[in-house]
């Protein structure tokens, strides 16, 4: 597999009516009751623990899985733990139509691949993407495929900046690769 490909099994964050959940905030992703935890390895068990219908996500998720969320994913506070809990579970990526601004920055800086996919809601409504499907995404071209349904889709390609930080393993490591004097 090429290095610019990300692939995995998806979890589509839908409500009990089967609709993508919008405006999932950082308190639903990682509740403030667990903010005292500093070890990333311990954070995964609380991921989505405060999101109705998804409280058991951490038991279901496997390393390499991909999360599919609704518009304005990661709204709310600046808490880094809302990114770190997914790194803890070793998720491969998060895809959503849009993200909270600070959440997106935090994810990029921590080397969690995040993709914007404006038409995601339509894909989910039409049953083109369901939990358990396997997808592949080329983050340079933005071309994606739901492998088991042979359905092609697009995400916004990753910018050079985001890719650079991702390859370095985070913003601090990225700095160490720069030729600064």
């Amino acid at each position: 597999m090429e290095k610019s490909m990300i692939s995995g099994r998806i979890w589509v964050l839908t409500n009990n009516r089967g609709e993508l959940i919008e405006d999932i905030d950082t308190d639903q992703i990682y509740h403030n009751a667990h903010l005292h935890i500093t070890e990333i390895s311990e954070m995964g068990q609380y991921a989505l623990g405060n999101l109705k219908g998804w409280e058991d996500f951490s038991q279901k998720a496997q390393p390499g899985d991909i999360l599919i969320g609704g518009r304005n994913f990661g709204a709310g506070s600046s808490r880094q733990q809302a990114v770190d809990c997914f790194l803890s579970l070793r998720l491969a990526a998060v895809i959503a139509p849009s993200f909270g601004a600070i959440y997106f920055r935090n994810a990029v800086n921590s080397a969690l691949p995040v993709f914007k996919c404006p038409d995601l809601k339509e894909y989910v409504e039409k049953g083109k993407m369901e939990s358990g499907d396997r997808i592949e995404v080329n983050y340079r071209t933005g071309e994606g495929t739901v492998v088991n349904k042979r359905f092609d889709f697009f995400v916004e390609p990753m910018s050079d900046v985001q890719e650079g930080i991702l390859r370095a393993g985070g913003l601090f490591n990225y700095e160490k690769t720069l030729n600064t004097t």
Partner: peptide
């Protein structure tokens, strides 16, 4: 305004990424 990770990086590199 940015968080402490971004500002640490800015202190060290003199740059920031921005959309």
């Amino acid at each position: 305004g940015m968080g402490d990770v971004d500002i640490t990086f800015a202190f060290k590199s003199g740059k920031i990424w921005f959309e």
